[in-house]
Design a protein around this nucleic acid. Structure first.
Length: 837
RNA sequence: GCUCGGGUGGUGGAACUGGUAGACACGCAGGUCUCAGAAGCCUGUGCCUUCACCGGCGUGGGGGUUCAAGUCCCCCCUCGAGCACCA
């Protein structure tokens, strides 16, 4: 046991509260006693409080991290006080391009840089007093961790969910490297300014699209922030519609190979070239006056007419040269006619087939039907190239031949079909169904659901990540590395910079690259790509409780006991990627029979952002707050509590140092109240009532993460309890120490021991309140005349309308507004009285 | 452009299901204590008018519903975040 005696007043400090001393003492005490390391095997009533692990940057923790961690810590500590065994782990998400680029800039190896950053993070995390179980700390860069990241890859591979295909990526021809979309600024490389190109490279993908519908429908049952669920729904982007078949007319077939498409039964139908398009508006089919294929569409070279061949080829080449970002953001329409015509299956008309880069190969079928009258993009395109525009939807005020004017008509509510043959007069919804039904009978359409979600590209042609555990053998082909041979260690090489070749730097290391085939023992080559950091973080919560097990990624019994995660708190910037990938990986492991649950996070809450003077903190703006300086000056307890007091936790707030002194004063008063407390005499009724109200409110508020109002409530109680320089009774102060403890854990422990307790305040139980004692027996009721508040009356808590009326009419300030006989009186018991004249 | 959040005193922010708008805190002003200060403690503090009482006006703007609107409905302005030619 460390020394529990209260510190003597230091120097001139009149009250003896020295945060630095108190905080150091209790951090050492927690460490020595293992206060924050629960017995995971035996602890009762488990509660897994998870915070998103940080990326250990060179700058150290920023206030945003601290804000998030403190919010999560308060919730975890509160749950512990409710009688749970709380597990609060931390780790570092330390692989990735960020670290690698930074290391390159500093001329250092990420392998030396990262441990240094982690040491600094650990130091900072320790001094804010989080209830972290340090015995389960992890880093994704540790071979004992990424061994199992590779294992996760293998599980997906085994399920047929990992595959390799060529995909378009941004390529900087000067830096000779692949760029993420965020690294392309206005079509140019963010580092060297060179125009970026599109390249096709072989990449590993996970088939997350197979899980799209499940990822979407499960959301309904999750206790998550609505904003996060909405973001996921939008990201998955389900759209229901139909695929419609447009036969190509009179094609000149080149080279005889014309690849007539294969029907469902496998027989080759001669001369049956056709374009399939996806649409969410089959009701507008009669208005489809042209088709547009994406420039990469396989039919393009086949259907292009002799005269158009050169133009088409030039356009395709132009599109290929564009980078992905510019292509998707340039709204100016461009395109060329292919020379081919297709038949609109509804009207039988011949319509021209164009190609344009506003149609993307990766979405739907890579081809669209152009309905210029009712789609903005198509309208723009048709105007530019002078294509036919036919109205097929009309609102009740429109006639069938009313011209469109200068914009597409995209409304649907209350509208009906026109110029659509026998479908005229149907509503949009009816038309949608009727047209698809009829075309389906002729095999010209199929109802289809499409998702915006793409498969997850996990390949990175970089160095700083876990090597993808695959080997290529001339004899056996693609061979997964057997689990017994994991981890595939990332070699510590000096020249880890990306180079001219466009493949990972690992390819340059023959001794690593060449290996023996695990199947036949023959010569083989290793996969040189490493995996995406999002794979590292997609399963880390499974590892924490079992982090000391070398033989399995996660123990069955421990996992059954501790997961799914009871509370997960993090930033909404991870609403889609990290949180979606974690759900996906969990589902896959569930389907493989390795996990009993399919959703990893029972409850998720997104915290807000801390800004400074209304702007996001950034080095370039020079408004970054260094938490160390604030902790030095005010102490961790004050800083934590202040961060929580600045605004609603789920909304964030504006950091300004002016307000921090108010919180410090509050803790000073708490300190003094405990030291001055008397043990004799009785409790005051008003103080006691306020106490019970406060216990109730603080508990309710913490449960809803309304930390700012919880703190305000404690301050109110303090004002009541210590009004003037009133000496409070110990029984009035003791519960306040407990209420404060999740926010300001060090001072709470200190004062708890001053109050004579020998065990941690976090092993005490949250104080209980008596509902009966929270009730006020007299109430102040507002009295309105014609809806305007004209005064108040003081009444017994169960006063009737009659009592209220009598009291109101006795007050001349009120009666002077009552100039006639009341027409009506509205009485809300306990709240207000409204006299209507 | 679309989606999701916001807009309340000098400032950060309260206000649960419509029911005394401005809790709590900062700041400011005055007082008390002190040789003086710091710290504490007490009082006041939305705006306009007034010596004061009284009164009027007030939650981005404009309409509406209601005995009653920061809260509900419609239109508009504005700030932040995310997504973005997704057919």
């Amino acid at each position: 046991m460390t020394d529990l005696a209260p510190p003597r007043p230091v120097g001139d400090a009149p009250i003896g509260y020295d945060p630095a001393v108190v905080e150091r003492r209790w951090q050492a005490h927690w460490d020595a006693e293992g206060t924050n390391s629960p017995d995971l095997a035996r602890g009762e009533n488990p509660f897994y409080a998870l915070m998103m692990f940080p990326y250990p940057s060179a700058e150290g923790l920023h206030v945003g991290n601290l804000f998030a961690f403190t919010g999560s810590d308060i919730y975890g500590r509160f749950q512990r006080l409710q009688g749970h065994t709380t597990f609060e782990p931390i780790g570092y998400d330390a692989f990735g391009i960020h670290s690698e680029n930074f290391a390159i800039k500093q001329g250092l190896h990420p392998g030396e840089l990262i441990p240094r950053n982690i040491d600094n993070f650990r130091r900072q995390l320790q001094r804010v007093g989080l209830m972290i179980d340090w015995t389960h700390e992890l880093s994704t860069t540790d071979p004992s961790y990424y061994k199992w990241t590779q294992w996760v890859f293998l599980q997906l591979y085994k399920q047929g969910l990992a595959y390799k295909k060529k995909a378009a990526v941004n390529w900087c021809p000067l830096d000779k490297t692949v760029l993420a979309n965020e690294q392309v600024i206005a079509g140019a490389c963010e580092r060297c300014g060179t125009m970026v190109e599109q390249r096709f490279l072989e990449q590993w993908f996970f088939r997350i699209t197979d899980y799209a519908n499940r990822l979407l429908t499960n959301l309904d049952g999750l206790d998550w922030s609505e904003s996060t669920k909405t973001a996921q729904r939008n990201w998955i982007g389900k759209s229901e519609g139909a695929e419609v078949v447009f036969p190509i007319q009179d094609v000149m077939l080149y080279g005889g190979s014309a690849m007539a498409s294969a029907g469902a039964s496998g027989e080759v139908v001669a001369n049956a070239l056709e374009v399939r398009v996806f649409t969410t508006r089959p009701d507008t089919l009669f208005g489809a006056t042209y088709l547009v294929l994406s420039p990469e569409h396989p039919l393009v070279s086949i259907i292009a007419g002799d005269e158009q061949r050169d133009d088409v080829a030039a356009y395709v080449a132009h599109a290929a040269k564009q980078d992905l970002v510019t292509r998707k953001t340039t709204k100016e329409k461009s395109g060329v006619f292919t020379g081919a015509y297709a038949t609109n299956p509804a009207t039988g008309d011949a319509i021209p087939v164009w190609i344009a880069d506003y149609v993307l190969l990766e979405y739907g079928t890579g081809a669209i039907m152009g309905v210029p009258a009712h789609d903005e993009r198509d309208f723009e395109f048709a105007q530019k190239f002078d294509l036919t525009i036919t109205r097929v939807i009309a609102s009740p005020e429109h006639t069938a031949d009313l011209p469109l004017g200068d914009a597409a008509f995209t409304e649907t509510a209350g509208c009906r079909l026109v110029n659509s043959g026998r479908f005229n007069g149907l509503t949009v919804d009816e038309g949608r169904t009727a047209i698809v039904t009829e075309l389906s009978a002729r095999h010209a359409a199929t109802p289809v659901v499409n998702y915006r979600l793409h498969d997850w590209c996990i390949s990175r042609q970089r160095y700083w990540g876990p090597p993808i555990p695959i080997v290529y053998c001339d004899a056996c082909g693609t061979v997964p590395v057997p689990e017994s041979q994991l981890p595939v260690l990332l070699p510590m090489i000096d020249d880890f910079r990306p180079d001219d070749s466009g493949v990972s730097p690992l390819a340059r290391h023959a001794e690593w690259y060449h290996t023996a085939c695990p199947q036949c023992g023959g010569p083989a080559r290793r996969e040189t790509d490493v995996s995406d950091t999002f794979l590292d973080s997609s399963w880390y919560f499974l590892r924490y409780p079992s982090s000391r097990r070398a033989d399995v990624p996660f123990s069955d019994t421990i996992t059954k006991k501790w997961l799914p995660v009871a509370s997960y708190i993090g930033g909404n910037e991870h609403a889609v990627l990290h949180l979606l990938y974690s759900r996906f990986v969990t589902m896959v492991l569930h389907d493989a029979g390795l996990l009993a649950f399919e959703e990893p996070f029972r409850r998720f809450r997104a915290h807000g952002m801390i800004v400074r003077d209304g702007a996001k903190m950034s080095k370039s703006k020079g408004n970054v707050v260094n938490p160390d300086l604030y902790i030095d000056e005010w102490g961790a307890d004050t800083f934590r509590t202040y961060l929580m007091f600045l605004g609603p936790f789920e909304e964030g707030g504006d950091f300004r140092d002016q307000g921090i002194s108010g919180v410090k004063r509050f803790l000073d008063r708490l300190w003094r109240s405990v030291h001055d407390a008397r043990a004799d005499g009785a409790l005051e009724v008003d103080v006691q009532r306020k106490l019970h109200q406060t216990i109730k409110k603080v508990g309710d508020d913490i449960s809803r993460l309304s930390y700012n109002t919880a703190i305000a409530a404690m301050m109110e109680y303090m004002n009541t309890m210590r009004s003037g320089e009133r000496r409070p009774h110990v029984d009035e102060v003791r519960p306040l120490v407990q209420l404060v403890s999740p926010f300001a854990p060090h001072i709470a422990e200190e004062l708890w021991s001053v109050l004579g307790n020998t065990r941690s305040v976090f092993d005490s139980r949250w104080p209980t309140y008596d509902e009966a004692l929270t009730v006020e027996n007299r109430i102040t009721m507002a009295v309105q005349v014609n809806g305007k508040t004209r005064g108040t009356v003081s009444l017994a808590k169960d006063a009737t309308q009659g009592d209220a009326m009598t009291a109101a009419m006795a007050d001349p300030h009120i009666t002077k507004f009552v100039t006639g006989q009341p027409r009506k009186v509205v009485f809300v018991p306990g709240r207000m009285l409204n006299i209507v004249l």
